[in-house]
Computed example of a mutant assay.
Amino acid sequence: MAKWFLTVLTGLGLLLSVGCSSIRHQQESEWLYAPMARPLQPTIQQEVKILRLSQLLQQKELTDEIRAKVFFERGNSYDMLGLKNLARLDFEQSLRFYPSQPEVFNMLGVYYTEINDFDSAYESFDSALELAPESVYAGRNLAIALYYGGRHRLARDEIEQAMQQDSADPFSALWRYLIVSEMDAEAARKQLMQSYHAHQSQPKETWGWSLVAMMLGETDDSTVFKQIMQETSDNTVLAHRLTEAYFYLGKRYQMQAHYAEAVALYKLAISMNVYEYIEHRYAFLELERIYNTIKDEHSSSH
């Protein structure tokens, strides 16, 4: 574990900086700033795009297929700005005009997962997979929904199918680890280690396998964050990578029952405003799970 990073526990500075903290599993503590990107903000291009798509939808001569496409595009634009309810309404409208859109069912499944409406999420992902059985994203997202819904064995079966379609995907490997850990932590770690050693040298996915190494403790946490800061000059890409890194590091601490550290990390993942990433979306679910865990532990001790 990186002693430098646990300093995020100083509550008031969570989103911008961290202070010196006494860490129970490290002998030292130090003053450091948590790596941050400027939180993403709406751009004039995004706002103009929404305006133009809205104007286009007012035209009566559009075919149903084109109208569905426009609703989908506007929904995506809303989604990237964090306007989830508007995005969901547009996706539902898109399906009303043209139902054969697996990517739209996939997005709706993610939305339903976010609000703990798991039956609707399963139905949406099933529809996506019926239309596009080869979709790794829909398969992985269904597995994640089953995981959050507490159906771990079914989640394991689904993520295994996603891994069979693309064994080199580090994010599927990470989620398989998280899912299988609920049933057999030792087997989950062994699987992840095997995937890491088999695919870590792939040039296209160097970043994803760095996250796997961090989860396994195969590399120092500080090394991963130094890699992000050194290799990333674009603020948007920086925000994306930090969102992912903070989320998966939060999962690691949560699995170790270090809840204060995990909460701080999830808040950092949320703070970059990368609304469309599942790591941003599901950080809220993880915060809720931690709250419920602590509440249950408190109730059982009284």
Rank of each mutant, 00 (worst) to 15 (best):
R96S: 12
Y248V: 03
Y277P: 14
L12Q: 11
P203G: 13
E73Y: 07
S124I: 00
R74N: 07
E30Q: 12
R74C: 11
E297A: 02
D234I: 09
Q101A: 00
Q254N: 05
G82C: 00
G11T: 12
I44D: 13
R74T: 11
L131A: 03
F118D: 05
A257W: 04
I50E: 02
T43V: 01
L238I: 06
G82W: 04
E30D: 15
H302T: 04
Y122S: 05
N85Q: 13
A155K: 05
Y177A: 15
H25D: 08
D166Q: 11
M255N: 08
T7M: 02
Y277I: 13
K190P: 00
V70R: 02
F72H: 08
I44M: 08
A132P: 01
M80I: 09
R74A: 10
Q200K: 14
K226E: 15
P42S: 05
S54V: 12
E92D: 04
P99L: 01
P99E: 04
C20E: 12
T10H: 05
M215D: 10
Y291P: 01
T43S: 11
Y196N: 12
Q256D: 15
A37R: 01
E28D: 14
Y112C: 01
M215Q: 15
H298E: 10
S233N: 07
H302D: 04
D90E: 02
L89S: 13
E134M: 06
T206R: 13
S181G: 00
V224P: 06
A187V: 06
A162L: 05
L15W: 02
R52M: 12
E158W: 14
L129H: 00
L211Q: 12
K267V: 00
G19R: 05
I270W: 03
E279G: 09
P42C: 04
E65C: 03
W31T: 15
A262G: 08
L95C: 01
L146H: 02
L53E: 06
W175E: 13
E218N: 08
I50N: 02
A68E: 03
S120C: 10
